[in-house]
Amino acid sequence: MADLHPSTILNYIASGRLYAVKLSERTYRIPARAVISLLEPERLARSSMTIEPDADVESEVADEPADQTMSA
């Protein structure tokens, strides 16, 4: 990857600079997005966060048994 030595990549993963999913002691899977984020961050498709404090979602849970609502 990008002419980097494997130990450099492992250091990136250990430091959190490069995100990877650990499959076993010696095996990682590095998501494409993590690679792009490291090498060409300007290419990343943008994520988004929407906050609507007054949105009404109560009707979605109208089937909830009133006496069985539980904290999970």
Binding site: R33, I36, E58
Partner: peptide
Amino acid sequence: RLGRVNLQDLGANRSIRKLVIDLVVPGQ
């Protein structure tokens, strides 16, 4: 870090609040 995220935080001012996270991988 894993993919393209769309997150919605709905109803913080009300009695029921909903968190929706939609993550597509690679999402590019």
